[in-house]
Design a protein around this nucleic acid. Structure first.
Lengths: 219, 219
DNA sequence: TTAAAAATGTGGTTATAACAACATAATTTC
DNA sequence: GAAATTATGTTGTTATAACCACATTTTTAA
């Protein structure tokens, strides 16, 4: 995914907008591209941001690191996905999470300024833009509640299956890659890494799954 | 909170709208009030809804009940709060949760129809309405990720403290009521009820909290 | 290609939460 | 206000996940 006008008009954020409208929006949102190397920090918990990000290439993880060194991964956002839009829209809400580059990344930032400012432009393109933001927000909502279902089982196996099933469903195949390594999957499912490894081994032996690295097959 | 025009103009959904605009919106959204008795079901998992709800009085819980009888409470929505707006906006997304009346409730339903339809009215009031929906959705987002932080600690005490601290912070006091009884708090924190009771007892003995029913005090 | 580093897996031990069964307290209802 | 019902607390046991230390595999870099 590379950033040119052609690509952007396919992004959900500019859905239904004319090329001229996209130009206007891009200017009004003073969009800037930035690049990040793997493992570098894109946004830090505590920061206040008036911009949200679109992942042009690479992928990022949204995570929380508490003062005792516990990491919780809330989600992974891949190409074409958005992050921090909630914080950008709600003024003065400090981020509760870090956004990390999980690979080398190119990020396109859109400066919302504030919804107040955005809505003060009562014109067609900003109407469309806000509608699209609403869609993005609603989708993010679904995604967030998705994780709740992955975490709710009390057993390791239950969580792993809940997660893998939902990925399988989304990809429409019983064979797929996940965007996490073992430690990250453990952090996403709120489990201890070695306990997760152990359980994955058992699940293989029980003929439930095949695993190789981050490639999974449900049987 | 009783439903009259005066009250509705203070609701976040009609924020910034003129009385005439509210009238137009109410008509276009074909709003209907319904009442529910305690413990009755308002929306059922699997249902498809094109309406979202505003809690006029009472409060509702958003919960998931899996086929093994495990209940997970995702949130409690009180007076003035909204639910199912995500599902109403995203067409044909079947609900993954049940919405239950936690007390006798009066609910005002707004029929979105679809965002497509909503956005086809390019007029001032629908512009404002969509902006407000965006705010509601962003706030719901914050709320959902809030629960993630309550669940991420691995110990019972950690979860309880994470939850109580966040309630205390929101209410601006170290003394407050929570909208859950013991079983519900356990279901919200993904814990076993008796284990939660046990830990609350220890926390009292350790001088961390005072508890009486659903009234808590942090020390 | 080898050495170093990082990721993943394995086994044993311990801490802790789930579970079950029951006691007590609080609330409802008749 | 007594009985019934529901909610909450208590105790003991068991299952399981965390934790720790280390082995093995895979990846990276020299």
């Amino acid at each position: 995914m590379s950033w040119d006008k052609n690509m952007l008009k396919d992004s959900i954020i500019f859905n239904g907008m004319m090329p001229e409208e996209i130009d206007l929006a891009l200017k009004e949102l003073s969009s800037v591209e930035k690049t990040y190397t793997k493992d570098s920090i894109i946004l830090r918990a505590g920061d206040i941001t008036d911009s949200f990000g679109l992942v042009i290439s690479g992928n990022v993880t949204i995570e929380s690191n508490d003062m005792w060194g516990n990491k919780t991964i809330l989600s992974n956002v891949g190409e074409g996905g958005f992050f921090a839009e909630t914080y950008a829209l709600l003024e003065n809400e400090p981020l509760l999470v870090d956004v990390m580059a999980n690979e080398n990344c190119r990020i396109l930032f859109f400066k919302v300024g504030s919804l107040k400012k955005l809505t003060s432009n009562m014109n067609l393109w900003s109407f469309k833009l806000i509608s699209n933001l609403l869609m993005i927000s609603a989708n993010k909502n679904m995604h967030l509640s998705g994780r709740s279902f992955h975490i709710s089982p009390k057993t390791i196996r239950g969580r792993v299956m809940a997660y893998l099933n939902s990925v399988s469903l989304k990809k429409g195949s019983n064979e797929f890659d996940i965007p996490f390594d073992r430690q990250q999957l453990a952090d996403y499912l709120n489990l201890e890494r070695s306990a997760l490894s152990k359980e994955l081994g058992k699940m293989k032996k029980d003929g439930l799954i095949e695993v190789k690295k981050n490639h999974f097959k449900l049987l």
